[in-house]
């Protein structure tokens, strides 16, 4: 064995990010004949998303799996907003296909000039709507709900268009804030409702599916450069295969998670007028398409597949 790559992620060691990185580690070992060993460190052992990205930039850590929405924020890699255009992607399968196409590679290559090498994706799950109190079954009911969102420009634009009152709040305070009614709702993926026990604090889920939540598998530039050409090719191949398998797994998990949440007494609602919600956010897509050519190309690719 020649190289050991320590890779961190900020989710718990039961999260699909852990499974995804372990998948990647196994493939890397196999394809490099054991030349390259990947070790996975979850539970923020190497830091949270922001620290992981900074750590890659300053060469402190070898590799990481970080949520895509953090990349525009911390690295200024605005192209990654393309993966979260509201209601543009039709399914896990479609997203997986585009991500493993040449277009996906081009997006990853935008990280090159930040001395980071992107090699693949692991999906944390489509985002839905968790609220306490009355079920949210039509778009009009979003009006005025105090909703915790991730405070980034894209999400702010989306949720203001939908009509909620977006609240910025530290993630650690969300459970207690939902429980006591400091906030009414949170936009989130189902697996987090399960892993953070948020179903104890709020019990209405509306399956809105506004966007997906890809994580990006990355190596620091220095770590990547230390690999032989054969190993580089093998790692890139492992990343691409991991993307396909991780997306299949995420799609499969979604159904299991819904069953689990129902067992916990959570009501799973559909939005009767999802088309209204989608129409409200259409202008956000137009705005972002104008901002970044990469976003435009992804939107075209997704719409072509529909």
């Amino acid at each position: 064995q020649e190289v050991t790559i320590k890779m961190g992620h900020a989710a718990s060691s039961k999260h699909i990010f852990q499974t995804g990185l372990e998948m990647f580690a196994a493939k890397v070992a196999e394809k490099t004949n054991g030349n390259v060993a990947v070790e996975v460190y979850g539970d923020r052992q190497l830091g949270d998303d922001k620290q992981l990205l900074e750590g890659l930039q300053i060469g402190l850590i070898n590799g990481a799996l970080v949520s895509a929405p953090t990349l525009p924020l911390v690295l200024g890699a605005s192209g990654f907003d393309a993966l979260q255009m509201p209601f543009v992607v039709s399914s896990y399968g479609q997203l997986s296909e585009v991500l493993t196409s040449d277009l996906g590679d081009e997006l990853l290559a935008t990280l090159d000039d930040k001395s980071i090498k992107g090699v693949g994706f692991v999906e944390a799950g489509q985002r839905h709507f968790l609220s306490a109190g009355d079920p949210v079954t039509e778009t009009a009911k979003f009006a005025g709900l105090k909703t915790r969102i991730v405070p980034i420009p894209l999400h702010k634009a989306i949720w203001e268009a939908i009509g909620v009152n977006p609240v910025g709040m530290a993630y650690g305070e969300v459970y207690s804030a939902l429980e006591t009614g400091t906030i009414d709702a949170v936009e989130i993926n189902l697996s987090s409702i399960q892993s953070e026990s948020l179903y104890d604090a709020a019990d209405q889920v509306t399956l809105t599916g506004q966007y997906f939540w890809p994580g990006v598998i990355m190596l620091s530039g220095a770590t990547w450069d230390s690999l032989s050409d054969a190993d580089k090719a093998a790692v890139a191949e492992a990343g691409r295969e991991t993307t396909t398998e991780a997306y299949a797994l995420a799609a499969e998990q979604e159904a299991d998670t819904i069953a689990f949440l129902k067992d916990q007494g959570v009501t799973i609602n559909e939005l009767s007028d999802l088309d209204v919600m989608q129409a409200r956010t259409a202008s956000v897509v137009d705005d972002w398409v104008e901002k970044d050519p990469m976003v435009a190309r992804f939107v075209d690719a997704f719409r072509a597949g529909n």
């Binding site: 830091g47 620290q51 750590g55």
Partner: peptide
């Protein structure tokens, strides 16, 4: 010594917390 660049990061991250 190459990890020294991590100290400022850890110091700032250690107190960069809303709570």
């Amino acid at each position: 010594w190459q990890l020294m660049i991590g100290f400022p990061q850890k110091m700032i991250a250690g107190i960069d917390s809303f709570v």
